[in-house]
Design a binder for these strands. Structure first.
Length: 556
RNA sequence: UGGCCUAUGGUGUAAUGGUAACACAACUGAUUUUGGUUCAGUCGUUUAAGGUUCGAAUCCUUAUAGGCCAACCA
């Protein structure tokens, strides 16, 4: 409820303003958007921004959003990608009205091309790609039209028909729009509409050997679907002129294109080409490697859909170049997980503690599952006279602000007793092998009558009850904030320590029942989630994100 | 040497001609059986120069900086 209040207080972004204006003027009864991925890679956090935008807008203003695969280039597109994209959109929590494909419109698009030819607005060009590039001029010099532009409508019709029939090899001919070779906008210098590709298409198979270019497919697809607001990223701004030209000449439903700045994030890369490279060259284990900025990677890492949605909403959109701090995303992940994650105790680097005055062999203690959520219940934790604590929770000669265990000092064991360090045992090499402590019986958690106040509380695990698990600690994939902007190859900036594996940690028994996709907070350690690599023989946990650690910062 | 887009704290976004603000980050302090959470506070911003105006982050001009455009990619 307070979240609703907040969103109402929040001001409109420039697209919401446009839409509210359109609605006010009665331009549309409802708005229709689309999310138009090309199935040539997995979706990343930048796409999540677009998804939240497109689906969020129609949810807010009434209308619907289509999922449309922009599959006009058969050589890079695969069904695997189609499936992953659908999974990701669903997981993010959105429902599309129609699942569509640009390839659904290939017949229609072919008709559109014929229409343009008949209007004298398109021609078949026999030039090579090099010739076309040369004739196009440069941003500062106008281009020149070649002789093929003079072909008759009849000839163009016949040649285009022959292109479709497979009479020509790849690259032998193209269909171009006849617009303006001298336009200051390079896109308008007789852009290519169709090219020949004798390639198998993931949906139309071998039906076609000519395929429309983006500029001749996207706007028309929008138009066919009656998209009211076609939202894309800034690099398509110059294409808008052609987008509008096609709609005007074809006299079809006038969809309109609006552009916003793509989302960049620190310490990662966001282009599908680069991500594909990381996958292909095995710098990561796959598209869903938890270090990847992909939606599937983040999901596997333990980021929640709610956190991603909140991130997209709260960061907002604009038209300026940006690189958002990955720390902001991590903030929303922590904010969400703090409310939801069950608390568990896990010791990563064990140091044995023996309670010398503990007479019973063991007892069962209870602890809250999540202090932030009273409905989360409690769990049982076995306690005994032999425990593990974290090695860095003990210091033989502590610094002044060190609140943890040290000779003669007392600490609280979380949900258990206060203990006092009496003796330090070392091996011959001088390594600490064991800490001997006494406990304060009347300091039991929940019924503490000891009157003792301690500054530090430690997590712990009973030695004989501990279960084992593997832990994967992830760090940023790159060492620098913007790997793409530096000199040289972005891969030069890969962080060699982005994955640290701890083969065996000691966990409290309650963790045995961990489920995939359940998030846990390992107390004082961070948020973790069970990885799909886990088997019956061993559990593997991914670190989603660490806890804020002001002590680590202060002690530096 | 063409055209287009954009410039607000460290970062991301507001303010729509009328008091420059919110979140994150950073820093203090309080609370705390997680050095977590929570709470209170501090820090710091309109690229520059002109112009219009009673009044400009906002409108205009110029400059500067960054981005995009010369793929048979999207």
């Amino acid at each position: 409820m307070s979240a609703e209040l907040k969103s109402e207080e929040r001001s409109l972004n420039f697209l919401e303003e446009i839409i509210e204006q359109d609605l006010k003027e009665g331009k549309y009864k409802q708005i229709v958007t689309r999310f138009p991925p090309e199935p040539n890679g997995y979706l990343h956090i930048g796409h999540a921004t677009s998804i939240c935008l497109n689906f969020g807008l129609t949810k807010k203003y009434g209308g619907y959003t289509n999922l449309r695969f922009d599959d006009t280039n058969p050589v890079t597109e695969e069904t695997e990608y189609v499936e992953s994209i659908k999974d990701d959109v669903k997981w993010l929590g959105f429902e599309w009205k129609n699942e569509l494909y640009a390839s659904d419109y290939f017949d229609k698009l072919y008709e559109f091309a014929i229409t343009l030819i008949k209007k004298g607005l398109a021609y078949v060009d026999d030039s090579t790609s090099e010739e076309i590039a040369t004739q196009k001029g440069t941003p500062t010099e106008p281009g020149k039209r070649n002789k093929y532009a003079d072909r008759s409508i009849e000839e163009n019709l016949q040649l285009f028909e022959e292109m479709k029939a497979g009479k020509y090899k790849d690259g032998e001919k193209v269909l171009r729009a006849k617009i303006d070779m001298e336009s200051p906008n390079m896109i308008m210098r007789d852009p290519l509409l169709y090219r020949i590709k004798h390639a198998y298409h993931h949906r139309t198979a071998d039906k076609w050997c000519i395929y429309p270019m983006y500029d001749f497919a996207h706007g028309q697809s929008d138009s066919i679907e009656n998209i009211t607001h076609s939202i894309c990223t800034l690099e398509f701004v110059p294409h808008r002129e052609l987008y509008d030209w096609c709609i005007e000449k074809l006299e079809i439903y006038p969809s309109h294109q609006y552009e916003f700045a793509r989302r960049n994030m620190t310490y990662t890369v966001m282009s599908k080409r680069k991500l594909l490279q990381l996958v292909n060259e095995k710098h990561v284990t796959g598209w869903d490697d938890p270090r990847m900025p992909t939606i599937s990677g983040m999901r596997r890492r333990g980021y929640t859909a709610a956190a991603l949605r909140e991130f997209c909403d709260r960061v907002g959109i604009s038209k300026r170049e940006n690189i958002v701090d990955v720390g902001l995303l991590e903030f929303f992940v922590r904010e969400d997980l703090n409310k939801k994650a069950l608390r568990r105790m896990v010791v990563f680097d064990p140091l044995k503690v023996v309670i010398t005055n503990y007479a019973a062999s063991e007892e069962i203690l209870t602890s809250e599952n999540n202090p932030e959520d009273p409905n989360s219940g409690t769990r049982e934790i076995p306690f005994s006279n032999e425990l593990y604590i974290e090695r860095d929770d003990f210091m033989e000669t502590p610094s002044k602000k060190y609140f943890r265990l040290a000779p003669g000092q007392m600490v609280r064991l979380k949900s258990a007793y206060i203990i006092k360090c009496e003796n330090v045992i070392k091996d011959e090499a001088g390594n600490i092998t064991e800490i001997q402590c006494t406990y304060i019986p009347e300091s039991k958690s929940g019924s503490d009558t000891s009157g003792i106040n301690v500054k530090g509380t430690l997590h712990w695990v009973s030695v004989k009850h501990a279960i084992s698990a593997e832990i994967r600690l992830y760090d940023r994939l790159f060492k620098v904030e913007d790997p793409s902007s530096g000199e040289g190859d972005f891969k030069d900036y890969i962080n060699p320590d982005s994955l640290q594996i701890i083969k065996s940690v000691f966990a409290e028994p309650a963790l045995k029942n961990a489920h995939l996709a359940d998030s846990y907070q390992f107390i004082r350690k961070g948020y973790f989630v069970l990885d799909k690599d886990s088997s019956t023989s061993g559990m593997i946990f991914n670190r989603t994100v660490g806890l804020k650690d002001s002590w680590a910062k202060a002690s530096k």
